[in-house]
Design a protein around this nucleic acid. Structure first.
Lengths: 136, 136
DNA sequence: CACCAATCTGGACTTTGTCTAATATCCGGA
DNA sequence: TCCGGATATTAGACAAAGTCCAGATTGGTG
């Protein structure tokens, strides 16, 4: 599967999102790289040639993608949120020094012994983050 | 063990922290409640009667406590960092609607199957966050 | 073409957190 | 006791991420 703009348009449509110019560019930025990007980085990528997309649109669009289940939010750095185009179950490895964030496939990871949830609560997700640092 | 100011002073000393007025107040705010507080909340508590402690000092002190291993940092909410006076191994339950954060004792939780770390890396910590929401 | 809804925009604004230079406090030694 | 230097604290300016709003643009439909 290539991450052409046309494919992005279908992807958006299949998630019930009206594929506008800006949305296609933002989706393309995220999916063609298969990387975790912050809103800032998305904006920088989308606006490389000439400024085309406003800050408000980038934020609105990322929030929309989130609601529609197209991307995940990863909260590891207190100063910025990352958006993750990989929505299959997986965990994260965060390199504190560099700020680099990578995936850990969830298929071999087991978490057991969690206590039952309080009444009337549903799990929205379980985030497992391994924080690592370069050895001194 | 009562969380008197005197006990706070010994606690600080035992962590190699010079126990000043402000530091004692901040430690007292965190430990007497045994709750997760944000920097904002700490500042509000410490300054209830009359404004006594500056924003800079609150932030400096929390960072100092962190370095000295007196508290832990919990990153669950994109907009603010929580400080956790419980440094024994445990995980977190985050109620998305209310922003309320509580502990999950780690002694019965097992995480297995994590892949080996990249070369030259050391684990700084593993954060497990269960995000829950009130059933609709 | 005209219309209506959806989308996008710049820019002001808010919030969290950092920085800095000046001041205050503490402590050991003469 | 007084002095001097190190340590701590402060107010306020600043920075960065994110939100909000009112007006402009776009796009599809009759």
């Amino acid at each position: 599967m290539h991450y052409t703009r046309d494919n992005m348009a279908s992807l958006l449509r299949s998630h019930d999102i009206n594929p506008t110019h800006q949305r296609i560019e933002i989706a393309h930025a995220l999916f063609s790289r298969q990387e975790h990007l912050s809103a800032d980085q998305v904006m920088a990528i989308v606006n490389t040639r000439h400024s085309e997309t406003s800050k408000a649109t980038v934020y609105n669009t990322l929030k929309l993608f989130l609601e529609k289940g197209l991307v995940r939010e990863v909260i590891v750095d207190p100063s910025k949120v990352f958006f993750d185009p990989n929505t299959s179950p997986h965990h994260h490895l965060y390199e504190i020094d560099t700020g680099h964030l990578s995936d850990i496939d969830a298929s071999h990871v087991q978490i057991s012994g969690l206590p039952p949830l309080p009444d009337g609560m549903v799990t929205e997700g379980i985030d497992l983050i391994v924080r690592v640092r370069r050895k001194a």
